[in-house]
Simulated assay, not measured.
Amino acid sequence: MNDILRPDLLWIEGRCYRVNDPTTDISFHQEHDLFENEMIYEDMPQEDDDDDYEVEMVDSNRFYTTFHVSKHYLGHIIGKKGTTRMRIQRDTKTDIKIPKLGETKDVTIYGSNVASVKAARRRINVIVMSARMKNHSTHFISIPMNSPDIMKSFESFKNSVLSECQSRGLEESLFIKASKLHITVGVMCLMDNEERLLASKYLTEAKELIIMPILKNYLPLRLRLKGLSYMNDDPKDVHVLYGTVEEDNVRDGLLQDVVDAIVEFFYKKGFMDKEFGRDHVKVHVTLLNSKYRGRSSRDDEDEPSIKQQRESFDGSEVLKKFKDFDFGVIELSSIHLSQRKSMGSDGFYQQTCVINLN
């Protein structure tokens, strides 16, 4: 239950909205009156109109805007028996054209003035972004940590652990593939090519607006993967062992500043939520994960191999013997928009967009 004095917030195109109850279950396949049941449409105070799109004139007393919405969200905009669309049209005094099943057209909004057209578009965006956050992630922003030297050290680490540690639940299938070693910055759901293109555009913008201004005086930034830690309170009952990352040649916290800024950027664009509501990304590289248990080298690491409760493992001996293991150093040369469940020819996740930092 939300604290009514501290409601959850949703950022859409640089504007902030209050969310009534984010725990409401939204079916992916059904039409819902999402606006009526879930959203309190209320702009938080904004000093400027910073919408990054134009409303064009049809004639002297009619204006319109057109924009892409994935077909997966059109039912949410329409609502049960069309009630959501009708309500938005009534409240904003607009006419909203939504493509029919099988059409590839964009959503178009007509109104008698610019303000009403923008108001309707914002309300549609609130609905789309709220629905997006409830879907499983399809993509994530990643920082590859798979240099040849680090991969070689990781294989050595894996072999040593398997030969020296005979702990409960510990087996080879728990280890991530060396070629997939990475830092996850944040995850998002991109349902079609238009959304993938837009997320790629945002990542390119983020490079110029926030990433390079932070890093420009520190490149090439060297990152060291060194030391082990775990995700819960009991080292004898863990699901994830991860490697910690530290800057090798600059002040501590620089990498944290970069990843936090990226998440904040995409959060305000409405494409990414903050994991567990945290203001700071937990910077780490997963090394062993119980969800990998039982899979072969050809299996996808993103999903459990079988539908059953995950079995933890005893990581205490590994932590004792390898707590300060040094996997080596890599230069931060690129940041990826990566696709889950898809692998490129180099063994890393298939890339949708890559920004180079050299």
Rank of each mutant, 00 (worst) to 15 (best):
G344K: 05
D260M: 04
D49A: 13
N2Y: 03
L101F: 03
M57I: 09
N2I: 07
L287T: 00
I355W: 02
M133K: 10
G169P: 10
E208P: 04
L228D: 02
K180G: 04
D252H: 12
E247S: 11
Q351S: 08
F265H: 14
A131C: 15
M188G: 00
V114F: 07
L225N: 05
G344C: 04
R132L: 06
D248T: 00
E171H: 10
S130A: 13
T108D: 09
E247W: 13
F266V: 05
G111H: 00
Q309T: 15
E311M: 12
W11C: 10
N2G: 02
F67T: 05
S112W: 01
S70N: 04
N113I: 09
L255R: 04
F63R: 04
D149Y: 08
S153M: 14
V281N: 10
G111D: 01
A261E: 12
C189H: 07
M272L: 14
S147W: 00
K282L: 06
Y53R: 10
N249Q: 11
T84D: 08
E13A: 07
K97S: 08
T92P: 01
T84S: 10
M231L: 15
Y73N: 04
E103K: 10
T352C: 03
L197W: 07
I141V: 06
K80T: 10
I211A: 05
D260K: 06
T24W: 05
V69L: 02
K216H: 13
S312C: 07
